[in-house]
């Protein structure tokens, strides 16, 4: 262990310091903003950091956000290793949600099998949604950033179509489908507050992603092609194939996240359920430089901040806009600190 301590330590210091500086600065600025708008600064800080840990419900809420953020970050991180930017996690997530909804609404099966099938169709549709940009990249070298963004637009309206079609639940005013069969619900590992099995799935998946990226030959080739595609190609790595393949893998993970969101939380497809998960996840993945273990850490951090800032509104009457500004400030400062470090 002493042998690897040097580079490993260096890596940890490299990652930690900018974020510590960035977060501190962000909170100072956020504090000034709140002070100027007439709110109790210290109480606000406490709310942001501690809400997640004060009640069982808010802890559960934090965990649920964490599951989704973690999985979507991983979905972004895998292609990131081959320097492909999977902006399409949002659309892939929604397609996964549609897949789970279809299985949940149309099939009648025993509990275990039903939910498994729902998740599988979610994975499949997520992967397929990523396969289209992947194919375009492989065949015509179409930039994946553009194609995945465009696939997101299609996904939004596809959700709209499903949620306002024959399956529409007409009781609530907002477009959503009727609830899925209870046999397709994700099993809970904890009742009251209810925590579903997705927490285990997401953590196992993240560790699996770590193993894939850093300990297998595929991960090696993926990282090599991301580090220097030309050199990787010169030394016999099939770069052309790996990038698109990693996009599809990312799509599958994002699809699973969407399916878990439907079968574990909402029990139906709701328009707008993608919330701000995708941009936050991209951020988490970039902060962690695609390393799933770092992502795990940053996902916890962002989930806590998310829940904490939204609680500001309830406890102190801070307008929701201001809470969003505080959150954005934190993230911007962290990113600036990161850029400054590289100089």
């Amino acid at each position: 262990m002493s042998r690897i301590s040097h580079p490993l330590l260096r890596k940890i210091i490299d990652v930690t310091i900018p974020y510590a500086v960035g977060i501190t600065l962000a909170f100072i600025i956020a504090g000034i903003t709140m002070y100027l708008t007439g709110f109790d600064v210290l109480l606000s800080y406490r709310t942001i950091f501690l809400t997640s840990f004060t009640t069982a419900d808010s802890f559960a809420l934090t965990l649920l956000k964490f599951i989704t953020l973690l999985m979507l970050s991983t979905a972004f991180a895998i292609p990131l290793m081959s320097r492909k930017f999977n902006i399409g996690i949002e659309g892939q997530f929604l397609l996964g949600a549609i897949g789970a909804t279809i299985v949940g609404l149309t099939l009648h099966l025993p509990p275990g099998i039903h939910v498994t099938l729902a998740l599988l169709l979610g994975i499949l549709l997520g992967a397929l949604w990523a396969a289209i940009p992947a194919y375009l990249l492989y065949k015509f070298n179409v930039n994946e950033v553009i194609s995945t963004i465009l696939m997101n637009f299609i996904a939004f309206y596809l959700v709209d179509y499903v949620a306002t079609g024959p399956w529409r639940d007409v009781v609530p005013g907002h477009p959503m489908t009727i609830p899925i069969a209870s046999t397709s619900y994700l099993p809970l590992i904890l009742h009251r507050p209810s925590i579903h099995i997705g927490i285990i799935i997401s953590i196992v998946l993240t560790i699996a992603a770590y193993v894939l990226i850093f300990l297998t030959i595929y991960g090696y080739e993926l990282r090599a092609s991301g580090s220097n595609p030309r050199a990787a190609n010169v030394f016999g790595i099939n770069v052309k194939f790996l990038g698109p393949m990693s996009l599809i893998l990312g799509g599958a993970v994002a699809g699973l996240a969407g399916a878990i969101e439907v079968t574990g939380i909402h029990y139906r497809l709701i328009e707008g359920m993608e919330s701000n998960y995708a941009p936050l996840s991209i951020l988490i993945a970039l902060m962690g430089k695609g390393n799933p273990l770092a992502i795990l850490f940053f996902a916890i951090f962002i989930s806590v901040i998310e829940v904490g800032t939204s609680a500001l509104q309830r406890t102190q009457g801070v307008p929701v806009e201001l809470t969003l500004i505080v959150e954005a400030l934190i993230l911007i400062f962290v990113l600036v600190a990161e850029v400054m470090r590289r100089r």
């Binding site: 580079p7 090696y220 090599a224 220097n228 030309r230 050199a231």
Partner: peptide
């Protein structure tokens, strides 16, 4: 630099 090295990977890799 262009054809030989993976700049973000380790010496061993």
């Amino acid at each position: 630099l262009n054809d030989g090295i993976l700049p973000t990977l380790s010496v061993a890799e």
